[in-house]
Simulated scan of single mutants.
Amino acid sequence: MSTPAPGAVLRGAVDLSSLRNRPAGPAPAGGTAPSPDGQAPASRLVFDVTDADFGQVLELSKTVPVVVDLWAEWCGPCKQLSPVLEKLVTELGGRLVLAKVDVDANPQLAQSFRAQSIPLVVALVAGQPVQLFTGAVPEAQVREVFTQLLQLAAQHGVTGTIPMEGAPTAEGDDAAPALPPLHQAAFDAIEAGDYAAAATAYEQALTENPRDEDAKAGLAQVHLLARVQHLDLAEARAAAASAPADVDAQFAVADLDLAGGHVDDAFARLLDLFAALPAEERAPVRERLLELFGVVGDADARVIRARGRLASLLF
């Protein structure tokens, strides 16, 4: 069982393209599907979805982060985890919603999310998948993952809320809170594909507040996005396989793996490279590992494991 923090880069770790813009089916039994305008019903933060109406959930994720719980009736750990997910989503008061997917009844979604083991929990932010965790994770760890998911969503401008049933509303209450100006500038630059400008904005934010953890994470993400934007995965893997000691070739595949959600693979590749190199040539590999640790997050179990192995190699 793995308990990672949210993947820091919104990228195609799974393919949801076939589920976009599909006509909505009827609301599934046991839950309420999102309405046709892409908004979650005001009375429900937890709802069932199907292969047919999942396109609406993708649209909803442009407003509020959507946690997706892939489960099955026969799955015991699923029955342990689902109440925890529902409790924490409700506690967050509409800042997240929970979409429940019965994998037996919805094989296309199960295939799209590569649900080889359940319970599988992923998220959608701005229509893009973010891997969260597999298995019945303890409540404290789910809470931490949700906190990091909200931070990630804010970095991508997804900061809306869904009103809860019975909650009083006032004019302007449903407006998304504004990002800090430099974070907004970075986000706008990312949207425009100008990663240099985004990096400059985050660097300025860190100059003003060196403890700005969101800016640190954002800067690491931008650097990664800039490096992978023109890489071809097949070509990069072929180059790395043909030259195992080529540091740049191994860096390229590690970056692509991390961007695609294969975090353990990325770390293992760089740690193996670090171990194989002479001591005087290891510094760039260590620096790249530390940068990627920052992308994923220091509290992530995979980072903790990788740091442990790095320490053992150093000493």
Rank of each mutant, 00 (worst) to 15 (best):
D188H: 04
A189H: 10
A189V: 08
E191R: 15
A192D: 05
A192R: 10
G193V: 11
Y195T: 09
Y195K: 10
Y195C: 06
A196Q: 07
A196R: 06
A196N: 04
A196M: 03
A197P: 01
A198D: 06
A198R: 05
A199Y: 04
T200R: 08
T200I: 03
A201K: 06
A201M: 07
A201V: 08
A205C: 06
A205N: 10
A205W: 10
L206N: 04
T207G: 08
N209C: 01
R211H: 06
R211Q: 12
D212I: 06
E213T: 12
D214I: 06
A215S: 11
K216G: 04
A217S: 14
A217N: 13
A217Y: 11
A217I: 12
G218A: 09
L219N: 02
Q221G: 12
V222S: 11
H223V: 13
L224K: 00
L224A: 05
L225A: 07
A226E: 14
A226P: 07
R227N: 13
Q229L: 09
H230L: 07
L231M: 09
A234D: 15
R237M: 13
A238W: 00
A238I: 04
A239R: 01
A243K: 11
A243T: 08
P244K: 02
P244N: 10
A245W: 04
A245G: 10
D246E: 06
V247E: 07
D248E: 15
A249E: 10
Q250L: 12
F251I: 02
F251D: 12
A252Q: 14
D255L: 08
G260H: 02
G260Q: 08
G260V: 03
G261W: 00
G261I: 00
G261N: 01
H262G: 09
H262I: 00
H262T: 02
V263E: 02
V263D: 00
D264N: 12
D265P: 06
D265T: 14
F267R: 02
A268F: 13
R269D: 07
R269L: 15
R269I: 15
R269S: 07
R269M: 14
L271T: 12
D272V: 13
D272R: 15
D272S: 15
D272F: 14
A275Y: 00
A276H: 10
L277V: 12
P278C: 03
P278A: 11
A279N: 10
A279M: 08
A279G: 07
E280L: 11
E280W: 02
